[in-house]
C-alpha cells in the first residue's frame, strides 16, 4: 500500500522528515518551529495514487554532470524516485532567533531488510551543488521492521544563512523567486551494494497557510 502512495521504493520507505529551528525560552522550555515537515502517515488502498511528474522537466534544477539526476535515474530502480514540493513555513517571527538557537534536520526511514544506508543531501543553487552532507546510518529492529533514524542532524552554515536572508526579504514573491533556483537532492544508497534505495528531489515555495508547512509528493517518471 505504501508504494505509489508515499515516498517508498520496494526497499525503503521515508517515514518522517523535518527541518526545524529550536530556541530555548528559559532553562526548562524550548520552542520548536518547523520550516518543512513530512509527518508519519498510514495510507490505505482507498487513498489516491501519487501523481507523476516527468523527470526531464526538472533535470536542470539538479546536478547534471557525472552522478547527476539523469544518470542516477537511468541506473534505477525508477520506483525509487520522487519529487517533493514544499511550501515552507518561514513565519517564525514569534521566536527570538539568536546564538542559542539550534537549526536541525531529522528524518526516519524503514525497511524489511537489515542494511547500512548512506544518506547524501545536496543543496543546489541554479542546479549546481553548493554543499553536500553524507551520513551513514545503521538499522535498528523496531516492531518487526528495520528503522533508520537521523535525529537532530545540525544544519550547515550555508543553510542557516540562506534561511536568515530569505526571511528578511520584504515580500513573498521575492522569496519565491529566490526559491525557484534553490533545490535539495537527497539520495539514500545501500552502502554495501551501492543500490539506490530512494532519491528525493525537493523544490520549494513559501507557505501562505496559517497551518504551517505543507507539501505534495510526486513520482518521477520518464514518459
Amino acid at each position: 500500500v505504501w508504494q505509489d502512495r508515499t515516498i517508498a521504493s520496494s526497499k525503503l520507505r521515508m517515514l518522517e522528515f523535518s527541518a526545524f529551528m529550536e530556541v530555548q525560552r528559559d532553562p526548562d522550555n524550548y520552542s520548536k518551529h518547523l520550516f518543512v515537515h513530512i509527518g508519519q502517515t498510514n495510507p490505505s488502498y482507498s487513498d489516491p495514487l501519487l501523481e507523476a511528474v516527468d523527470i526531464r522537466q526538472i533535470y536542470d534544477k539538479f546536478p547534471e554532470k557525472k552522478g547527476g539526476l539523469k544518470e542516477l535515474y537511468e541506473k534505477g530502480p525508477q520506483n525509487a524516485f520522487f519529487l517533493v514540493k514544499f511550501w515552507a513555513d518561514l513565519n517564525s517571527s514569534g521566536m527570538l532567533d539568536g546564538p542559542g538557537s539550534f537549526y536541525g534536520v531529522s528524518s526516519q526511514y524503514s525497511s524489511i531488510e537489515n542494511m547500512t544506508i548512506t544518506v547524501s543531501t545536496k543543496v543546489c543553487s541554479f542546479g549546481k551543488q553548493v554543499v553536500e552532507k553524507v551520513e551513514t546510518e545503521y538499522a535498528r529492529m523496531e516492531g518487526g521492521k528495520y528503522v533508520y533514524r537521523i535525529h537532530r542532524s545540525p544544519m550547515c552554515e550555508y543553510m542557516i544563512n540562506f534561511i536568515h536572508k530569505l526571511k528578511h526579504l520584504p515580500e513573498k514573491y521575492m522569496m519565491n523567486s529566490v526559491l525557484e533556483n534553490f533545490t535539495i537532492l537527497q539520495v539514500v544508497t545501500n552502502r554495501d551494494t551501492q543500490e539506490t534505495l530512494l532519491c528525493i528531489a525537493f523544490v520549494f515555495e513559501v507557505s501562505n497557510s496559517e497551518h504551517g508547512a505543507q507539501y505534495h509528493v510526486y513520482r518521477l517518471v520518464k514518459e
Binding site: E51, A52, V53, R56, K85, E180, N208, G212, H216
Partner: peptide, 24 residues
C-alpha cells in the same frame, strides 16, 4: 531537449504543483 532557464510556471507540471494544500 534542454529546459534550462525556463521558469517553473512554464513547464509541464501537474496543476496541483501550484496549489498549496489547505490542511495541516
Amino acid at each position: 531537449g534542454s529546459v534550462e532557464q525556463v521558469p517553473m510556471r512554464k513547464r509541464q507540471l501537474p496543476a496541483s504543483f501550484w496549489e498549496e494544500p489547505r490542511l495541516s
